[in-house]
Amino acid sequence: MLLFLLLQAAAPAVPTDWSTLAPLPYVASPQMTAPLTRFVADEITAGRCTPPRPADGHYVVKVDVAALVGADGAIRRTVPRAIDCPTVEQYSAGLVVSFARGNLQPHAGAADLWYRVTIVYDWHE
């Protein structure tokens, strides 16, 4: 537990202006699949999230995630931007970690760097 707290204290703070962050440098861009999107659709259907209801039944939910990447290419931390749906926020942060595993271009230097990712869930009712 103490080691975890020390590592957290040493990590760079989450930037306040995410627009200045470079996109996460994937080797191969992740592809959203119907099963990945289905989780978000199910959360909305269950009433745990309430995005604006589209008139045509076409939903688009976007979640921004800041990702701290170590010099070794491993994700050290993810922070989702709040969209008033904690389950989808955390799900998205987890997807970033999964998509990045073994799929990031190395960055120069020994410092951990923050990047940004936008996960887009797009489906019809």
Rank of each mutant, 00 (worst) to 15 (best):
P51N: 01
A66F: 08
N103M: 04
L36K: 12
P106Q: 01
D84M: 14
A74R: 08
R53T: 13
V79Q: 14
V40N: 07
P12G: 03
G109N: 01
E89S: 12
R76M: 09
V27D: 10
C49V: 07
T16G: 13
E125R: 02
A110N: 13
F39A: 06
S19I: 08
R116Y: 07
A41T: 01
D42Q: 13
G94W: 02
T78M: 05
G73M: 03
P12S: 04
V96G: 01
R81M: 12
N103L: 08
V69T: 02
A111Q: 06
T118G: 02
T118I: 00
V97M: 13
F99H: 06
Y91N: 11
I83D: 07
T118A: 03
T33A: 08
P80R: 06
W123M: 10
R77Y: 04
G70P: 04
A55G: 10
S29R: 13
P54K: 10
W18C: 01
A9M: 10
R81D: 14
G109S: 03
Y121L: 09
R53L: 11
E43Y: 00
P23S: 02
L24P: 08
V65S: 06
L104H: 00
E43N: 09
T45K: 00
H58Y: 11
H58Q: 15
R101C: 03
S19Q: 09
C85K: 06
A100I: 08
R48F: 03
D72R: 11
W123Y: 07
T20C: 08
M32V: 05
G73H: 02
V117I: 02
R77K: 09
Y91L: 11
L21K: 07
D64I: 04
A13N: 07
L68C: 05
Y121I: 11
S29A: 15
A100M: 07
A111M: 08
T45R: 00
T16W: 12
V96Q: 05
D56E: 12
D112I: 03
G47T: 01
R38Q: 12
Y26M: 11
P52N: 12
A108N: 04
A34L: 15
